[in-house]
């Protein structure tokens, strides 16, 4: 019983990190039609920046804020000066972001070294909480809450605000939004930066859990790809459901078959693609 409970909670908290990360990826794809290979870099850089700031200031929230802002600026610059020049050219865009992935990976290795490091948890969330006969880390429980909160906020932002309406319209028909007199290049840059910020946030939230190390960018990016494929590219709701599926599949899979780690994480993808190639919430 406690095996099931603990692994389910582990899976859920991991799923929330995945969701925050994948939401950014799917949003960027939905509007800009870019599969951002460097999304994992934003995760890793976010985590590392937060790590340095927290080590210097001993303040988790300050680390989170500075990581998000720094990575958003980086994303905005990258979109504005390089990606925007390749508008609607799918393959060159992917190759460009792939190039950035390598550059950022090497940069991170240069600055922060090759040893795995954990982002310190906020002091309030140290320790464990006892319930239902188990002692469970408070930080992981908090993650579940934060993930749900982010999901609700994103949903409210997309459905309830004017900027959200513009983004949703842009996903359907770019020309129409342009005709409405909206500054599309600005919206694109803003959304790309926002997506990068979400990835950085994922890195900070996941940092105390999964650690930061060279190659973590590839690992999480790959899981995020699986999530958005399962959920349907461009769908936040799909990304949420898919994160839960992939997070749980990965956790139970690793618990049962440690040699086949990652393999179980892609089983949801294989099944969904076999039945519904456009993903759970994707438009057919």
């Amino acid at each position: 019983m406690s095996f099931w409970l603990i692994n389910a909670l582990n899976g859920l908290s991991f799923a929330m990190v995945l969701f925050v990360l994948s939401a950014g990826l799917t949003l960027v794809f939905g509007l800009l039609r870019i599969i951002n290979m460097a999304h994992g870099s934003f995760y890793l850089l976010g985590g590392y920046i937060a790590l340095s700031v927290i080590q210097a200031s001993d303040h988790f929230m300050l680390g989170m804020a500075s990581a998000c802002v720094a990575v958003m600026l980086l994303g905005a610059a990258m979109q504005r000066w390089t990606l925007a020049r390749l508008h609607k050219q799918e393959l060159p865009q992917s190759l460009l972001t792939l190039g950035f992935l390598f550059m950022f990976a090497d940069l991170a290795f240069w600055i922060w070294g090759g040893n795995p490091q954990l982002v310190p948890k906020p002091a309030v969330l140290e320790g464990a909480i006892r319930f239902a006969g188990i002692a469970y880390p408070a930080y992981r429980l908090a993650l579940i809450g934060i993930g749900v909160l982010v999901a609700v906020l994103l949903w409210a932002l997309l459905e309830g605000t004017r900027i959200g309406a513009v983004v949703r319209a842009g996903m359907d028909d770019e020309e129409m939004v342009r005709a409405m007199g909206i500054n599309i290049p600005l919206v694109f840059t803003a959304v790309f930066a926002f997506g990068a910020g979400l990835a950085a946030m994922g890195g900070v939230l996941g940092g105390p859990l999964l650690g930061l190390f060279p190659g973590a960018d590839f690992e999480v990016a790959m899981l995020a790809f699986v999530v958005v494929t399962v959920g349907g590219l461009g769908s936040i709701r799909g990304a949420f459901i898919a994160s839960l599926l992939v997070g749980l599949a990965d956790n139970f899979g690793t618990a049962w078959f440690p040699q086949l780690s990652l393999f179980t994480a892609i089983i949801p993808m294989v099944i969904v693609l076999a039945l519904r190639p456009s993903g759970l919430m994707g438009r057919a």
Binding site: T82, R85, L86, Q89, L91, P92, Q93, L95, L96, L98, G99, F100, L101, F102, M103, F104, A105, D106, L107, F109, W110
Partner: peptide, 16 residues
């Protein structure tokens, strides 16, 4: 690795 990334970026921008 950095050089390789930079080459990728250059190719994507100028010689896809």
């Amino acid at each position: 690795l950095f050089v390789m990334g930079a080459i990728y970026v250059l190719f994507a921008l100028y010689a896809p």
